Simulated scan of single mutants.
Amino acid sequence: MSKFTKMSLLLGIIVAFIALVLLYLKKTEAKPLIEIPMHLSAYDKKTGNVENLSANQASKAFGVLQFFSKPNSKNMSQSILCVQDHQIVDKIDLYMPDMGHGSQPPTIEKIEMPSNIRSKASSEIQLGCFKLDNMQLFMTGDWQIRVFYQNGNLGLFDLKIIE
């Protein structure tokens, strides 16, 4: 066996090994523990009032919030938030509607769309994704992750913290 043949064989084995590792990693991609859909409302900046939109208007928005570990009141939470019209997101905050207060805003970082969300989105919908870190959901009860849009719309993700 020539030196060239041996090198080609060794290179082929290395490439096959790398392909198997990549295939394994793709199959073991983390799946979300909790996934929450968005519902859309209208927000009046002057009064702070939130109004429900008609079913037709609300159905035109898509958003999903994913947690990979169970959020609780004892630890900082982290999630991935993907929404339609991400270019006009003004701010994202955490709010307890029953208590009338929120908490410190999460740290927000724009990220690439994860493959588990890309497979759910249609090609007509342009989604953008954000990683939300340091989510201080410090009390048990009902929380909302609120996405404020520059056009006056408000995306709401409802979440119950039970411990």
Rank of each mutant, 00 (worst) to 15 (best):
M1C: 11
M1H: 11
K3A: 14
K6I: 01
K6A: 04
M7R: 15
M7F: 11
S8F: 01
S8D: 09
L9W: 04
L9I: 14
L10W: 06
L20F: 09
L22K: 12
Y24W: 06
L25S: 12
L25R: 14
K26M: 05
K27D: 06
K27W: 04
E29Y: 09
K31V: 11
P32W: 09
I34R: 09
E35K: 12
I36H: 05
I36L: 15
H39D: 15
L40T: 14
L40Y: 11
L40C: 06
S41H: 10
A42P: 03
A42I: 03
A42N: 06
A42R: 03
Y43H: 12
D44S: 10
K45E: 15
T47A: 04
V50W: 00
V50C: 10
V50K: 13
E51R: 04
N52C: 00
L53T: 10
L53E: 00
S54H: 00
A55D: 15
N56G: 05
N56D: 15
A58H: 06
S59L: 09
K60C: 05
K60Q: 15
G63R: 06
G63Q: 09
V64N: 08
Q66I: 01
F67W: 07
F67T: 01
F67M: 04
F68G: 00
F68N: 02
P71V: 07
S73H: 05
S73V: 03
S73T: 03
S73L: 02
N75S: 14
S79W: 06
S79I: 02
S79H: 05
S79L: 07
I80G: 02
C82R: 08
V83H: 10
V83D: 09
D85V: 05
H86N: 13
H86F: 13
Q87R: 05
I88W: 00
D90F: 00
I92E: 08
I92C: 05
L94D: 11
P97F: 02
G100I: 03
S103K: 06
S103M: 09
Q104V: 07
Q104H: 01
P105A: 08
P106R: 08
N116M: 04
I117G: 12
A121H: 05
S122Y: 08
S123A: 13
E124Q: 01
I125L: 12
G128C: 13
C129H: 02
F130P: 03
L132D: 02
D133V: 02
M135A: 00
M135L: 12
M139K: 13
M139V: 03
T140E: 15
T140P: 07
G141P: 14
G141V: 09
R146I: 00
Y149C: 06
Q150M: 08
N151I: 10
L154S: 01
G155H: 07
G155Q: 07
L156C: 14
L156M: 15
D158A: 15
L159F: 09
L159R: 05
K160T: 15
I162E: 15
I162P: 00
E163M: 03
